[in-house]
Simulated assay, not measured.
Amino acid sequence: MSLLDAGPDRSAEDRPAAGELLRFVALGDSLTEGVGDQVAARWRGWAAVLARSLAPEGRAAEGRAVEFTNLAYSGALTVDLATRQLPAALARRPQLAAVLVGGNDTLRTGFDIRRTALELDATLGELSRCGAVLLTACLPDPGTLLRLPAPLARPLARRMRAVNTVVHALTVRHRAIHLHIAELPWCTQRGLLSVDRLHPSAQGHHLIARRFHELLTAAGHPLGPPPVAEPAEPPPGLAADLWWMATQGTRWVAARSTDLLPGLLALAAAEGTARLRGSSGRHDEQMARATAQALAGLG
């Protein structure tokens, strides 16, 4: 199915004609909102960069352009996609829809892989039924990016593995185009990460956009030239990074510490106790079993 053709459930009259917009909608959290890639006073991000490369060469003569809508916002959970972002996305009748979420779920004390699977399956299912080509991705775990000590990093990695396992399964279920963002060289190429070490830098966002462009092209979708290898805008200097951390980063940490920090300390204590008893592998097995049961419960 081409981005310019009807989706599996579209009638002939719904197909984009010459001059009609190619509608691209992005759902997700701060990664897709564009945090880390600031242009003027606003976030841009990988989805906006990709949108500029979606219109095939020669389509301009036909008057065809790309209509891009970014519904992602910082702190969004999978449940927020289904309840808040999905209705707005469906109203735009997208031909391409990006759904990247799950990192914030792992940072919550009430993490529930079953609920994550249900909400993500519902979101992807509704978008697929409206005929959209889907983009999904697995994400790196925040503990690794932040280089947290093992008692903190291990439980976060366990949760992120569970989320990514669900995303991989739902990618197959809904025939999405999947990017292994978790496998990109975030930790070996520091320039790909922003000052907070949780979000891509401008260079990192451009890398994600190029990889999605490559996958769409390989799948047979006619696109324009790929995004440039390097952002046109220079990266912010040290003073700008320090200013961001002082004015925004501190608030970000404080807002999440009320929920995240106590939960992380409890996880770290449980992890330390388990390692002393030689039973830390049991927690991995329990999470893997819960993930399998969550997927089996989808039918």
Rank of each mutant, 00 (worst) to 15 (best):
R10G: 11
D14F: 05
E20N: 14
R23P: 02
V25F: 05
V25T: 13
Q38P: 00
Q38H: 02
A40Y: 05
A40I: 01
R42W: 03
R42S: 08
R44I: 00
L50R: 10
S53A: 14
A55S: 15
P56W: 02
A60L: 05
A65E: 12
T69A: 15
S74G: 11
A76F: 01
R92P: 02
Q95K: 10
L96T: 05
A98N: 01
N104M: 06
L107N: 05
T109D: 13
T109H: 06
I113Q: 05
I113F: 03
R114D: 07
A117Q: 01
E119F: 02
L120A: 06
C130S: 11
C138Y: 03
P149N: 13
R161Y: 01
R161Q: 12
A162V: 04
V163Q: 04
H168Y: 04
T171S: 15
Q189A: 08
G191K: 14
L198D: 06
A202I: 02
L207N: 01
A209R: 03
R211C: 07
H213P: 02
E214G: 08
L216P: 03
T217M: 05
A218F: 05
P222S: 10
P234N: 12
P236Y: 11
A239N: 01
Q248R: 15
L260N: 12
L264F: 08
T273M: 11
H283Q: 15
R289K: 05
R289W: 04
R289S: 08
